[in-house]
Design a binder for these strands. Structure first.
Length: 462
RNA sequence: GGCCCCAUCGUCUAGCGGUCAGGAUCCAUGGUUUUCAUCCAUGUUACAGGAGUUCAAUUCUCCUUGGGGUCACCA
């Protein structure tokens, strides 16, 4: 069974890059009928917070990416880690190092001065003597030397590292006894049964260290997939500075989960020429072997296009519900269907839809000067007045077609073109020169409001 | 700096020795629309450079260049 996981450290919100690897992991597990697990890496008490962990969980909930099983919190697993540290100590695969931080710093300075790689020199590796007083030791693992470590990566291929180039006896437990990242990752992934690790390729250089741990503990090494980074427009790793990297900001901006997920799944992954993927299609088509090797630049133009696409293809019922998050209650509006049909193909986001709707529903108080100048001709007042009168005398006006017929009648009677009434009427109804079809707008706001708006416009502009 | 990764239109990408180098987005133009948006059509734009292998390289190898990542008692 394929078991994948997402393992964020709760130092902040869930960001775009993290979400993409989480999505990949989720899809791969689902495709194989496996499990997608969640682990909160909260061992750094100074930087982690419960709020951040909750925020991440909330984002997953919004997106509908449900995890399997219980969430694992590393902060609650001290005994487990201690047990494996002790095991390595007993087996003499790890040892206590009494070097002080000052001594370590000194060693590094010397190495840098000699243009050597900074590394621990292994001075306590086989230490048998009396422990120095007043020093709490760290635990270091005996890392292999003179060997080659191969990371068999499903995205990058086999990546070879020379142990002597990159390894030293690195710390697996701090002076206060707490285990370090590379150690707990290996232990937890094994204990949780994770056998396929999909993560950012910034972890690629950590992987040999984790392999050292796996081997020391006698664990099976999982399959790795290192996914390329998402870069900002400067070509650098996407960071909090780049703005709009918090997943929940996309909710506030009016994007739906389906649009965001579809956008993200195509960033660094593709399936032929297909651009639109429902969740079901993602699950059936996703395969990490098709993940790109190169980094991609984060650019949201396509997200807008996808978002517009999904909005256009959403049912009015769904939209009305979604829109309630944007301070717009349409559920009881009797012209809801007409309204939503009119605006859903004019907006890129839910937020825009809400704004557009409010624009239509609100009586315009100001009229765009340029629009007035362009639309209001000498005979406009006469035409609008005549139309207003016609509406007053009409009794059954409900559908856009009713209003359209009324307009048609008027232009026929007066022997004028459609533009003669259309242009000034649009400005009167909406205060500007562009917008949805006039018949639709009038049907939505109704006869009385239409007459009122025409009157307002005539009062203000003639 | 050491180590590692990467390199096709502006952007997301297809390609897996022989293609008019395809799609999407963006942009531009035209059509539809009384307007705007939608929609439809058309168009501009790419294999980083240099060697090699081969009858044939975007595709394989090497080098150069460029970009990125990582080098903690952080994760």
């Amino acid at each position: 069974m394929v078991v994948t996981r997402f393992a964020p450290s709760p130092t902040g919100y869930l960001h775009i890059g993290g979400l993409r690897t989480a999505l990949f992991s989720y899809l791969w597990a689902k495709k194989n009928g496996g499990k997608f697990l969640l682990r909160i890496e909260d061992t750094d008490k100074a930087r982690n917070s419960q709020e951040a962990a909750d925020a991440i969980l909330k984002a997953f909930e919004w997106l509908g990416l449900t995890h399997d099983g219980e969430i694992v919190y590393q902060s609650q697993r001290d005994e487990i880690y201690a047990k494996y540290i002790k095991q390595l100590l007993d087996e003499k695969k790890a040892y206590k190092c009494y070097m002080s931080k000052e001594e370590l710093a000194e060693l590094r300075e010397g190495q840098m001065a000699n243009k050597q790689r900074t590394m621990y020199d292994g001075r306590y590796r086989d230490f048998e003597g009396e422990a120095p007083e007043g020093i709490e030791p760290v635990i270091r693992i005996k890392a292999p030397q003179n060997t080659e470590i191969i990371v068999r990566d499903g995205v990058k291929g086999d990546v070879k590292f020379q142990a002597n180039d990159i390894l030293d006896d690195f710390v697996i437990a701090r002076a206060d006894g707490s285990p370090t990242y590379n150690f707990v990752v290996a232990v937890d992934d094994h204990l949780m049964g994770v056998n396929e690790v999909i993560r950012g390729d910034d972890h690629l250089s950590n992987t040999p260290k984790q392999i050292v741990i796996y081997e020391a503990l006698g664990f099976n090494i999982p399959k790795f997939y290192h996914v390329p980074m998402i870069h900002n427009s400067e070509g650098k790793k996407l960071s909090k500075r780049d703005g709009a990297t918090d997943v929940m900001e996309y909710k506030n901006m009016g994007y739906t989960p389906e649009a965001l997920l579809n956008f993200l799944v195509r960033l660094g992954w593709s399936h032929g020429d297909q651009e639109i993927f429902s969740m079901d299609e993602m699950v059936t088509h996703f395969n990490p072997k098709d993940i790109n090797k190169s980094a991609s630049i984060y650019n949201t133009q396509k997200l807008d296009w996808l978002s517009a696409h999904y909005l256009k293809n959403s049912s009015n019922k769904e939209l009305a519900e979604l829109l309630s998050e944007f301070d717009l209650s349409l559920t009881s509006h009797d012209k809801k269907e007409i309204l939503l049909d009119a605006i859903k193909e004019r907006a890129k986001t839910l937020k825009e839809m809400a704004e557009l709707t409010k624009e239509i529903l609100a009586t315009p108080l100001v009229f765009d000067e340029k629009a007035v100048k362009k639309a209001f001709k000498e005979d406009s007042a006469e035409v609008l007045s005549a139309f207003s009168l016609k509406l007053q005398n009409a009794d059954e006006l409900h559908l856009p077609s009713d209003y359209h017929d009324a307009m048609q009648e008027l232009v026929d009677e007066m022997g004028i073109g459609f533009g003669k009434i259309g242009q000034p009427l649009r400005v009167a109804l909406l205060g500007k020169a562009s917008g949805p079809g006039l018949d639709v707008v009038m049907a939505i706001i109704g006869k009385t409001e239409t007459i009122l708006r025409i009157k307002n416009a005539l009062d203000a502009n003639t």
